[in-house]
């Protein structure tokens, strides 16, 4: 407020403001905790958009191998012939990775800040009134989601831990369906898949509510809906994603 006070006294040329260090708007915003929460929320929304689209796309597996494999083909051919084969998909993947990196960087630096804000912990048990299990475990649910994402890429994208990756189906398309079935038929993989998605749901139960506060979206007319939105969003993601390993193990999806 020193600035406001001095601009009050000085002539109306606004020189007091100009003395401020110049920085790019976004860098300036990111330099503070509130700004980092903006980044966290915006990247969170992008990741939510991806997770939802990904889940809906995968529902194609209930329509059979050909449907899912054609869908995968469609993604590779996105914007073809404007973009060469697979290019649009790689751009999307790059964007998604950038979102994840920013989300993680903001999460990490705010966690460091928060640890420093209370170096000596309470020595007696806390009795939380409003904070939820979800809100208090964001770092853990997020980290397990990250471990899962890593495994998932090694499994179904790069095929490092999936022997079926590379196989073609009867129509000569990449056998994405077979890859999924091969992966989720392994019981430990299916269990990890279910646990990770439940934790992602817990992350979103808090996260999809928290975005509204972080972005300053507060309006008495829709405030009550924010909790319901987050609960519904998390539930839809968990139910959709968990159905896949269950369907594979139950033989509903399979060769």
């Amino acid at each position: 407020m020193t600035q406001a006070t001095s601009s009050h006294r000085s002539p109306v040329t606004g020189t007091a403001v100009a003395s401020k260090r110049r920085r790019l708007f976004l860098l300036d915003l990111y330099s503070t905790a509130v700004g980092k929460k903006y980044v966290m929320a915006i990247t969170g929304i992008a990741l939510m958009g991806f997770v939802l689209t990904h889940m809906i796309g995968n529902l194609k597996m209930y329509l059979g191998a050909s449907e899912l494999n054609h869908y995968a083909r469609f993604l590779e051919e996105l914007f073809y012939p404007i973009a060469p084969h697979g290019v649009a998909l790689w751009i999307l993947r790059g964007g998604l990775l950038a979102m994840l990196v920013l989300h993680l960087h903001a999460a990490y630096s705010l966690t460091v800040l928060n640890r420093r804000a209370r170096p000596v912990k309470y020595q007696s048990a806390r009795d939380f009134q409003i904070a939820t299990f979800a809100s208090r475990t964001m770092r853990w649910s997020g980290m397990i989601a990250l471990a899962f994402i890593t495994w998932h890429l090694l499994d179904l994208t790069f095929g490092v831990v999936n022997e079926n990756v590379g196989a073609k189906d009867a129509e000569g398309l990449k056998d994405v369906y077979g890859n999924v079935v091969f992966s989720l038929q392994r019981v430990p993989v299916a269990i990890f898949y279910v646990i990770a998605n439940v934790l992602l749901g817990i992350h979103l139960f808090h996260g999809a509510w928290s975005i509204f506060q972080s972005l300053g979206w507060n309006n008495p007319r829709f405030n009550k809906l924010r909790r319901s939105f987050a609960t519904a969003f998390a539930a839809i993601i968990v139910i959709g994603n968990v159905s896949f390993p269950v369907a594979v193990l139950a033989g509903v999806v399979g060769n």
Binding site: A33, A117, A131
Partner: peptide
Amino acid sequence: DLYFGSCTNHGECQ
């Protein structure tokens, strides 16, 4: 920001 932690919307303050 100089002295305190950052809000993660726990709501515990309220």
